[in-house]
Computed example of a mutant assay.
Amino acid sequence: MTKTSERIVLITGTSQGIGQAIAQTFLDNGDIVIGGAFSEPENAPAVQQMLADYPQHYFYHPVDVTRTESISAFVTWAENLFGKIDVVVSNAGKNVFKGIDCEESDWEHNFNLNLRSHWYLSKCARPALRKSKGTILVITSNHAFSTMPGCAPYNISKRALLSLVQSLTIEWGPDIRTVGIAPGFIDTLGNQVWFDSHSDAKLARERTIKKHPVGRIGRPEEVGELCLFLASDKAGFIAGTTIVMDGGRSAIMQDEEDI
């Protein structure tokens, strides 16, 4: 394909949830999105819908971000499509809540998925981003700042992403600008599964909402809108930091029921 004047945005984890919303936000902005996720397109209704709605702006390639060779192939495929990459949103990840006494296999899977993948995706995309003076957005979690029992080793890898954002900024700037985003409780199907795991899903949701000073949990599209802003020239002086968006949840010192 020929080069385009529109921004080329590479996003992982676009088959559902936050990644899907981020992709939708950039698409609605008129950007070209190259999405990737573990699922094959025929098994991902959201992917099929975006491919149908944006046939000239949305492109999808399966990628297993726990495998470095899959990440490398994904980035190469993306570059070959349009000859450049302007923005990378490293979003793919998963809750690995096994506790600090987890098995070694859980530990390794978590760090391959929730830490190494972000580093390696950035590394593979670096040559293209240097040419475009591009931006890397790393999606971490508010668990990077404070967490709860049983959330290891997930929270440990998310904390490490704060340092990854700093190092990418220090070592690759000013050619490439890097920012982290740490969402809190976002209303996705995955979180609904967590609600449904309780004996009273409605009560579990109500209790969760009460823990947020803003009186609600987050919406996926809000993460997308923040990504859109941070990838723009208006955010050009924001780098090397991670922005928490958790509705004030982390401002609470202690939950009343835990006293």
Rank of each mutant, 00 (worst) to 15 (best):
T188Y: 03
W172I: 04
G180D: 05
S146C: 10
S117W: 05
R126P: 06
N142L: 03
T178G: 02
P174V: 13
P149Q: 11
T188C: 07
I156C: 04
S157I: 01
T135H: 09
L137M: 09
A144C: 02
L189F: 06
I186Q: 02
S157D: 05
S122E: 05
P183A: 13
Y120A: 09
S132T: 12
L115C: 06
Y120V: 10
N142D: 09
G190P: 04
R177L: 04
I156Q: 00
S132E: 12
P127R: 14
H143R: 07
G173E: 02
I139S: 07
K133M: 12
N142H: 08
R130P: 05
R126S: 15
P149H: 10
S146I: 01
T147I: 03
S163Q: 13
R116F: 00
L129A: 10
R126E: 13
V165C: 01
G184K: 02
I136M: 10
I156W: 01
P153R: 12
S117E: 04
K123A: 13
Y154K: 05
T169F: 01
S122D: 06
Y154Q: 02
S132N: 15
N114F: 09
G173T: 04
S132G: 14
S163V: 05
P127E: 10
N191A: 08
R177M: 05
P174H: 12
A160S: 11
R159N: 09
D187H: 08
L164E: 00
G150V: 02
V165A: 04
G173D: 02
P153F: 10
L115R: 06
C124R: 15
L137I: 11
D187P: 00
Y154R: 04
V179G: 01
Q192A: 14
G184N: 00
A152G: 08
H143N: 09
T178R: 01
Q166G: 12
T135F: 03
F185I: 14
F185V: 12
L168R: 07
K123G: 10
N191W: 07
Q192E: 15
N191D: 06
I136K: 11
C124S: 14
I181M: 03
P183N: 11
S146A: 13
Y154V: 02
N114Y: 13
S167R: 09
R159G: 11
F195I: 01
T169L: 02
K131G: 14
S157E: 05
Q166S: 12
V179M: 00
I186H: 02
L129M: 09
G180R: 08
D187L: 03
S163M: 08
A152W: 00
P183E: 07
S146G: 10
L168E: 07
I181F: 02
G190R: 10
A160R: 05
F145H: 08
L162T: 04
K158S: 00
I139K: 07
T135N: 11
R130C: 11
I156K: 03
D196V: 02
G184Q: 01
G150A: 04
P153H: 13
R126T: 15
K158H: 02
D196E: 08
I136P: 04
I181V: 05
T188H: 06
T178W: 00
F185T: 12
A144L: 00
N155M: 11
K123L: 12
